[in-house]
Design a protein around this nucleic acid. Structure first.
Lengths: 265, 265
DNA sequence: CACCCGACGCGAACACTGTTCTCTGTAGGG
DNA sequence: CCCTACAGAGAACAGTGTTCGCGTCGGGTG
């Protein structure tokens, strides 16, 4: 805020700069060659440095990859939060769709990071507390907020959702909610989990190329599934027949309206 | 069957044997060290061979990995087909659950193959026609058969499902069905896709460790989601409220009855 | 039977990789 | 002004995928 030359002592600033350059270069190599082909010597070469000099900034190739992964998570969370913030607070389905589409757009635009994040087994044990875990929680939190606000608005009859749960499930879901500091009943958590599951399943299949090529550009199928999973949560007020172009909230926002302004990017 | 010494000319037999040993050794190394750590020199060492000798059997490290991946796909498809065959043909929900559980069991038991299969971007373009593609189709076909037989049995009102589809979606789903030689209407295909999506999403999150640790052993949540996705398809006869321990088919088979005899293994 | 050709396996070699060690300038802070 | 900490360089080690040329055996053919 003030005008004094630099709050950080220049030395640190330079260090940050080259570290950023390293990450950026590594990211570029990652994007065009895939995670397996990322080589420290490669980024050193691209930067005009000796390979050994990199070790002043990065402990090993593995932690560099982990760092990039965490950055990817953060970028995704940012995109989701932006989509959520830009959405209409009164159009719950519309905002949910916006967030879901932002997630999809991010997955398609950042294919390699997506692989890095969701296609890799998390290292044993040392997950909780990691920056990766924190950023992942941030992403999931946005998805959940879409649902919880709908619940608060009375769109979801959590009672009948809770009814189908066994005591064990209820306890676990409650523990999960407590862990995240959210106050949703287990029925709501189950709905959130289902939505997350389906969203992730679709995007994972699509961006890994496992979806049949017959349905190219499955954007509308994605929209439909996302609408469906939301409508299922709201089934108390949206009866059985799935809403094709009709629903409880503003119809013009319901389906496939503006796929352009979704991503944070 | 017969008594003649060997229908295949011995030379070929030996070749197959060592190739199998190579694959087996590679598989073992894969299972305990992860896909990134699979080294040709390593398997050569374990087999007491010179590294260069491996190249008589395997063109490169990459094609060996691809071969193992395809084997993994085949193993999964076998497990699913076995579960399907062992299921009660009249208890559609039960059989669907059996198949879904078999899939989950396989995913948890074969963690590394799962990563290899579903955590890796498929190579560009050259996917269709590959052995991988064929085996994947086999797996998906089992999942679909669960649904199509339920449709045939009149459990699903495909009419109201079809109603929610746009013409474009309908055309694409029909093209997909044609590609696979199955005769389901687009509505049914949409349901199948949703089921597959959700199943895969859950298993992917779980076996990659992205599911919150608060809900350890999420088997019952998995069962619930799988029941739910089936019930949603059958919503014509199972009205809005999700079946907790009640449903259209035999209740004792509905939920979490016998998780032991699921896998093909 | 002898022969030969193809398949098999081996060892050395090349071009890489991650990583560590030691050394040298140089620039910041006292 | 010095001096120390630190950025960077270079060599080296262990390991990797992959290729090439060499022997050596075995099975089909004359």
């Amino acid at each position: 805020m003030a005008a004094v030359s630099s709050p950080i002592p220049r030395r640190e600033r330079l260090r940050r700069a080259t570290l950023d350059e390293i990450k950026q270069t590594a990211h570029a190599q990652l994007a065009e060659l895939g995670p397996a082909a990322l080589s420290l010597r490669g980024v050193a070469r691209a930067m005009g440095m000796a390979p050994s000099a990199l070790y002043r900034y990065v402990a090993s190739r593995e932690v560099l990859l982990a760092e990039l992964t965490a950055d990817g998570f953060a970028s995704l969370a940012d995109a989701l939060e932006a989509a959520f913030a830009a959405g209409d607070p009164h159009d719950h389905l519309g905002r949910w769709l916006d967030v879901a589409r932002a997630h999809r757009r991010w997955a398609l635009d950042h294919a390699v990071e997506y692989t890095l994040i969701f296609g890799t087994r998390v290292p044993d044990g040392g997950f909780v507390g990691t920056r990766v875990a924190i950023e992942l929680q941030r992403s999931v939190a946005v998805l959940f907020r879409c649902m919880t606000e709908a619940i608060k608005a009375g769109l979801v009859d959590t009672g009948h959702l809770d009814a189908g749960l066994t005591p064990t499930m209820r306890a676990r879901l409650r523990a999960w909610a407590d862990d995240h500091g959210v106050t949703i009943d287990p029925g709501g958590m189950a709905v959130c989990l289902a939505a997350w599951t389906q969203l992730h399943g679709f995007l994972s299949l699509e961006s890994f190329g496992h979806l049949p090529p017959a349905l190219d550009d499955p954007a509308d199928l994605f929209d439909r599934q996302m609408t469906e999973v939301f409508a299922r949560a709201c089934s108390a007020i949206v009866p059985a027949g799935l809403p094709g172009a009709e629903g409880p909230t503003r119809p013009d926002r319901m389906v496939g309206s503006d796929p352009a302004r979704t991503g944070g990017r």
